[in-house]
Amino acid sequence: MSDAGIWLAAIGTLAIFSFLYRDNPAYRAAEQILVGLSVGYLVVITVRTTLVPKVALPILDGDPWGIVAAVWVLLMWTRVSTRAGWLSRLPLAVIVGAGAGLSIPAMLKARVLSQLGAVIRPEIDVNAVVGAIGVLATLSYFYFTRPPTGAFRVAARTGTWFLMVFFGATFGYTIMSRLSLLIGRTEFLLGDWLGLL
């Protein structure tokens, strides 16, 4: 990083941190600059890595598929018009439809079948039994269409405890890694910027 760069980054860092006290003009300015830069960044990257190679270049090469791609782009851009804006529903339908179709086998495989495969272990020990009970209890917590009474209530309650253990574990696990982020930023301010470290 150049000197000017370090100063710029340091001022920006302090401006963002000032939000912890309260919203203020410095934060608001930093926020707007960040958002403006990031929108510009994403547009540039998208134009250069997707729209040019997948739409513009194929059209210049005379590839008819390039024209089809261009039609999708134009349909999406009809949104800027109030009268033709409804045409953008067509590309939206492609996204939703194809997304739904693709996700059915993917979800069933990754979220259901492979999880089941991991629960049904080839050898049984205490952990395998606890694991299976945990899965069954958690599932009964997610049972919606039956009043929670009797044994079912016990199962769902056990499920809540397993859920709480999971939430506690992710919470405890993540706290530590978040603290290291702060350490990283402080190191930048004290070391790279002020040269104290």
Partner: peptide
């Protein structure tokens, strides 16, 4: 707003 994760959070 923006597709940047923390730009979005800041906004």
């Amino acid at each position: 707003v923006t597709g940047s994760q923390f730009g979005y959070a800041a906004a």
